[in-house]
Design a protein around this nucleic acid. Structure first.
Lengths: 214, 214, 214, 214
DNA sequence: TATGAATGAGGATTCATTCAT
DNA sequence: TATGAATGAATCCTCATTCAT
């Protein structure tokens, strides 16, 4: 019992340290960017010694990737949830869109990085794993969308169309909207909530598809 | 006479140096990104001494901004051209879209940077001027689009609609498409030329607007 | 009874741990050298925790010295053996030489270290004890040689000579030969076994002494 | 004129800096060894900034190699000189031996390092070039010795013998003697100058060869 | 005006050692 | 007694910027 209690206590402490390091790293990385981020500060904010970082993460890049991966995993599981629900196609698309925008606007820093991570020239020095993971993340989104559209076409709710391409357009539009949210001056030009704009955009596209059929 | 000739020759020399520095800087910045770019290499490629860089540009960031600004100006003047032309609304939108995609895919590095420049966490250390300039650039695009749509509505070619928002959607869609072009694995999922996809997207949206009206 | 049994078992365990640590340390120290050797790896290879090392050895240097001392003791006892045997001087010198070369070529890493240990500029940070121990080791060799030579002179087998100096030369020659064995490219220049070369060298020197007398 | 004067002054300054860095590096490397040597101290002793070191040498190892190479080159040219001279074989061998011992005892730190450099485990982290250079240096010595012996045999001054092997023995003996000089306690056992011991050793070996022939 | 040598602050990483459990 | 998490000093190297020539 005592032994077990001891072990748990140590393990707990370890987990807490890891957590604090990740949190501190997230703050510093998002404020200063990968290159400018200073591990001294991360350690200080996490309340651990500099060397302790290296017991948990092999390198600065590794720590960065860990920060990103955490969000990626959270995103994926929530995305699956949002997609699983049943209902009419439009409604399902709205729901997915709502989640998608909400998630990335809440975690805007992650979006920026995921979105730009492929552009090696902006970051540089990141391990290839990170790139691959991010690519897969986007691919998953497209597949979810296509699944919904395919179902809609099969059910006769949607006009026949190239579901890959429509997924692509919808996804692309969402990303463009989110990104626009982060470009400071743009916001003033838009008076409606982003989610409403996207909802209308979805409707417009779907209507466009329907009409195309006629 | 001689003095004037000499002065001109000096001025020419200066311009040529500036040109070579900018070209070298562009190459290096785009290959390595702002943070990783090395001014030693820029100087070498430009065929000038390192110290000479500082006679033309105040700092690394200043040089970077100069590189970006050059492209920004070129883009703006060409964008105006593409927009000025007359014709039916759809055709004008197609033309603008074609130019927009073509330009940014040709200058993909600029797009990446313009698109992400406000994300401090990716770059950091850039002067505010750069950010403002880029914002204005995007604003100009939206205004051009809105002008075309307003005209279309006024002429009865287009259904009544919130032209700001439609501009926003169209612009957003284009940006998303371009960005997607740069995410390696995405390309394989799209079998049609990007420009065709965007053309259809425009049509779909416009059709959606028309049908919305009914 | 039980207590005693337990104590023995504990003692045994301790000895086994010590043994495993020394073995692991030897491997790592010889592969990477004192400075580059990593105690993490030593602990891992020994199958104990890092902290445990410090229950057996006070410091990295202390562990290193222990590794060296072990070989030193083995060498000394075998050297005594090789020298004790009787027979004509030449034969005894041959036998000692054979053992000397064989031992150090088998334990080349030890030789390298013993040979260079006083060169602070190569290692550095080692305690003075180590240096003293090694010096004594070499001194012992010289004394053994001198003993044999003195006996040879006393028996009339050898010409009168400065036995210190001849010991010195013979010892020096052996060391040079062994060292040369470890310098990669040298090996190709020598077509005969090292032991044969040394045997001839001994003969040559002894012949030289004899002739000198004449 | 002025321009040229300027250029020389700069060049001079550069050479002086290089010189000071090498000198400081030699002192520190020889006192602390490669691994323990601190470039901060080197810079300080050289009276330059830390970064300046890297304008002259690519890395710590590169600087170390430069220090060694300087001595290597000096040795080689002097060795050639010592060997070129004419005279009876014995006399030439004595002269070479005298130079060899004198040089390495004067530059004892170099000897230690050259001698042990092949033993990666003592140093570690040195570029392969260094190793190759050092090997060549020793090879050169052997070739010089063999040249002299071959000539002696050809002239009938020396008995027929395997000149490779005799070179090897003579060289080996010299190295052993020099090394013994650096093992602290040994020195007290030898009352005659090292050079005299070696001279006698050469004589003994050559006499041994002659007698062997008979 | 152009040069390029010199600068030095700044940061990631390692690892022997300690100590609470 | 054994553990292994935590420590933090130590150090190499980079590179934007300056300034004497």
């Amino acid at each position: 019992m005592e032994e077990s209690g001891e072990r748990i206590s140590r393990e707990e402490k370890k987990q807490r340290s890891r957590r604090r390091i990740l949190d501190a790293a997230r703050d510093v990385f998002f404020r200063d960017g990968f290159m400018l981020a200073n591990l001294d500060e991360v350690a200080m904010k996490a309340g651990v010694a500099k060397g302790t970082l290296y017991r948990y993460f092999e390198s600065k890049a590794d720590l960065y990737v860990a920060v990103l991966a955490e969000n990626g995993m959270a995103f994926e599981s929530k995305m699956q949830e949002a997609a699983v629900a049943s209902g009419p196609v439009l409604e399902r698309l709205h729901r997915i869109g709502e989640f998608y925008l909400a998630h990335w606007i809440e975690h805007r820093e992650y979006f920026q990085i995921f979105w730009a991570i492929d552009n090696q020239s902006l970051i540089g020095g990141l391990p290839d794993d990170a790139l691959r993971d991010v690519s897969k993340l986007w691919e998953g989104c497209l597949e979810v969308l296509k699944g919904v559209l395919d179902r809609g076409v099969a059910d006769g709710e949607l006009a026949e169309c190239d579901t890959w391409e429509v997924s692509y357009i919808l996804w692309t539009m969402a990303n463009g909207l989110i990104q626009s949210e982060f470009i400071a001056p743009r916001k003033e030009l838009r008076r409606r909530p982003l989610q409403d704009v996207y909802r209308d955009a979805i409707d417009t596209v779907v209507r466009g598809l329907a009409r195309n059929e006629n």
